[in-house]
Structure formats: C-alpha cells, structure tokens
C-alpha cells in the first residue's frame, strides 16, 4: 500500500490556481524529493496534503485513508522561517511539542515524553543544547531542533519543507544521515528541495512540480534533462550549470 496518494489535487488562492490537477503516488520506505521552481506550489502541496489549507478539488489518501491528525501517522517539519524564534522557550520544550498529539487534551507531557524528546535531540546531535533558549541557536541548530520535534512525533510518513535552506554543511550532512536512518526504519520521507545538484545523491524518487505534476518516479528515470526543462521552462539559462552536473552523474 502506498503511503501517500494524491489524485487531481487543485488548490487556489483567491481565483488563481496554485496547484492544478496534481496527481502522484509515493512508495513506502523511500526518500522523495519534491522539486520545482519558486512559486511552483511545493509548500502549498505539503500544506494541502496535511489539510492546513483548503483544497478546491481532488483526493488525498494517507495509507489508503483520508488524512486524520489523530491517526498520528504523519510528522511535519515546517519552514524554519515560519515561526518566531524569539518565543520564550528552550530546545527541549520545542521538541516536546512533537509529543502533544500523543499526550492528548488536559494533560501535560510526562517523564516518558521528556525521555523521548531527549533521545530525539540526541539523534540530531543537539542534546547539549536542550536547555538553550531557541533564539540563541544558529540556523542549522534550529533546523535540527525542528527535525527532532518531527522525530518525537513518531510518525510513519514525514513531510519536510525546505529543511536544507540556510543550514551549514555539517547540519546538511547530519540531516541527510538522519533521513537515511528513517528510510532504513521503513519510514517514508517527502522533502521539499531546491538544490538540483544534490537531488541525485539524496533522493530515491523525485516529483517534479510546477503547478502541475511534470513527472514523478524513481530519480534515475525521472530526473532527466528533458523533464527539468519542462519543469523550469524559461528559467533554463541559469539552470545550465546544474544540467551539466546532472548529465555527468
């Protein structure tokens, strides 16, 4: 059973369609890159799948069912810039938020949740910063805290919105190692990504998006010059350098 199936999804802001007739399926236990130019609707796609924005039409199935948060099969890493890092809280507390769905109403996260949260911080190499105020962390460290929070959700499918943006090289390596670890555990990870040079190295599958689905499937089949040209259209000129790399690999 495919963990994520999207059929004919259309999303519109005001009257302008941001996603139009998007259809794709992702296989279980793979790393999937969602690739496309700015304004292609990559973040919108994730938000629509998670029900954060209304869809105009289409079907979305997570493990063959309509997505319901209380099934707790989905973990989410929003864009780092979407929150105010000056919020009065520390790294451990943010990771604990990943447990809130498990804790339920009227209860506080318990000792067990704190242990899980600490473990998740350890997995991203941030256990030393557990009590650090989040505004005092670097961009890469903040991103790792967000990843740890998603791990604490203990999900089967993960959606990550641009986790590699604005992070240092060490964090990028740490993140990709973590993604591979999740894959080994049989989890499915969808990542919005826009560095074309690393696509072949990082992802098993890609989904090329530009308002419509351009192509989706195994990276070696789908990540071709022809498909990229169709995805990026007129912006080809500044793609050329990347294309060479694509071809060489």
């Amino acid at each position: 059973m495919n963990p994520v199936v999207v059929e004919n999804l259309t999303v519109a802001y005001q009257k302008k369609p941001v996603l139009s007739n998007v259809s794709f399926e992702v296989p279980e236990g793979k790393l999937i890159g969602i690739i496309g130019p700015n304004g292609a609707g990559k973040s919108t796609l994730i938000k629509a799948i998670l029900g954060l924005i209304p869809k105009a039409a289409g079907e979305i199935k997570i493990y063959d069912k309509k997505y319901r948060p209380k099934d707790r099969v989905v973990g989410y890493v929003p864009q780092r810039g979407s929150v105010d890092w000056d919020f009065p809280t520390n790294a451990l507390d943010v990771v604990l938020m990943g447990r809130y769905g498990h804790v339920g109403w009227f209860k506080r996260p318990g000792k067990k949740d704190t242990e899980i949260a600490m473990e998740c911080l350890k997995k991203v190499g941030m256990e030393k910063y557990a009590n650090r105020q989040i505004s005092q962390l670097s961009g890469g460290q903040q991103q790792r805290v967000f990843l740890a929070r998603a791990l604490a959700q203990d999900a089967k499918v993960y959606f990550m919105d641009e986790p590699f943006v604005g992070v240092d090289a060490a964090t990028e390596r740490a993140i990709i190692e973590l993604l591979n670890e999740l894959k080994r555990q049989g989890k499915t990870v969808l990542v919005v990504h826009h560095d074309l040079q690393t696509v072949k190295e990082y992802f098993d599958h890609v989904m090329l998006l530009n308002v419509n689905t351009i192509a989706a499937g195994p990276t070696e089949e789908v990540f071709t010059l022809e498909n990229l040209t169709r995805t990026y259209g007129g912006k080809l000129s500044f793609l050329e350098k990347d294309q060479l790399i694509v071809e060489q690999k």
């Binding site: 989905v74 989410y76 929003p78 929150v83 809130y100």
Partner: peptide, 13 residues
C-alpha cells in the same frame, strides 16, 4: 503551541 507554531498545531489536529 498555537502561539509558537500554529501550522504545526493545525497539523497535529
């Protein structure tokens, strides 16, 4: 959580 990260809050239902 709704003050810090409303998107995440909505995503967990």
């Amino acid at each position: 959580i709704t003050s810090f990260d409303p998107q995440m809050a909505a995503a967990i239902g």
